[in-house]
């Protein structure tokens, strides 16, 4: 699993790099971004995974969110993978922006057409962490995950499906209950088939109901002017209700005036980095 450095730029004393490698899970070349804080020069750092939303690559987050300063200060290695396999020549792969390329939905596909390459869940929870642990000065015991929109959904399910693996989780405008929203239905149908009971394994609201695990502190920021919120794609209330019922600690902040964009993310990214740092650096 040789890594090929695509770029490297100094940023807030650390280095923002992009690597390319041949993914075993996805059976294609994958790029991912790595931010190495100054602290990584002298010791192992905790690692924070960012899962991006629909249509994104590794570039959106690292170029738009402005997370570097907070990550540099807290000494966190931040990994930002791509959102789906690319160039797998699967029929219909490029047909729509909310399915296929750029829309991996962080599931391991079971449908024949997609199951070979679209294993983003395994990629972000297993292959990529292994790769990172092997190649960068990180402490494997200290990892957390966060994401935006579809990536927020990914972050929540990664944390909820792997109790104890992630020290903390947070999300910006996540798809909280994809089973019940159009994006989710489309994607799950495409990747997992029509058996809706299989979908629940990738639905945060369902996963919370059976979450057994250790204490998880979930921070969710949601723009109040987010068009997808009013469109019923995100459904945070369902998730909050489930968490309230299961006494899973969530602080959900409905941010007045913010939309779904990276401007919204950039506004609160520091809060989220701190949220994770609190657990990663405890």
């Amino acid at each position: 699993m040789a890594l090929k450095q695509v770029s490297s730029s100094k940023c807030f004393g650390g280095l923002q790099k992009v690597f390319e490698h041949d993914s075993v899970e996805l059976k294609c070349k994958m790029k991912f971004a790595v931010y190495l804080p100054p602290k990584a020069e002298t010791g192992k750092c905790p690692v924070l995974y960012w899962l991006s939303g629909l249509t994104c690559t590794e570039q959106n987050f690292i170029s738009k969110s402005g997370y570097h300063q907070a990550a540099s200060e807290h000494g966190l290695v931040v990994i930002a993978p791509d959102t789906s396999p690319r160039g797998c020549n699967i029929k219909g792969e490029e047909d729509s922006w909310d399915f296929g390329t750029g829309a991996g939905f962080y599931v391991d596909a079971t449908e024949d057409l997609w199951k070979t390459n679209y294993r983003m869940y395994s990629y972000v929870t297993k292959e990529l962490p292994q790769l990172v642990n092997d190649n960068f000065p990180v402490d494997p015991q200290r990892m957390s995950v966060f994401g935006h929109s579809m990536g927020g959904h990914g972050a929540l399910i990664c944390a909820l499906k792997n109790p104890g693996k992630y020290k903390s989780v947070s999300a910006f405008a996540p798809l909280c209950n994809p089973v019940l929203c159009r994006w989710g239905k489309k994607a799950f149908t495409g990747y997992l088939g029509t058996d809706q009971s299989k979908w629940e394994a990738y639905d945060a609201t369902y996963l919370v109901k059976s979450y057994p695990g250790p204490q998880l502190d979930i921070l969710i920021d949601q723009g109040k002017e987010d068009e997808f919120l009013s469109d019923g794609q995100l459904l945070p209330d369902n998730f909050i209700a489930a968490c309230t019922e299961k006494k899973i600690p969530v602080v959900f902040r409905l941010q007045e005036g913010y939309d779904h964009s990276y401007y919204f993310i950039a506004t609160f990214i520091a809060d989220h980095i701190r949220h994770h740092a609190k657990y990663l650096n405890a």
């Binding site: 109040k224 968490c243 309230t244 969530v250 959900f252 902040r253 409905l254 941010q255 007045e256």
Partner: peptide, 8 residues
Amino acid sequence: TPDIRITV
């Protein structure tokens, strides 16, 4: 006040 929901 901001709109904040707390589950626990």
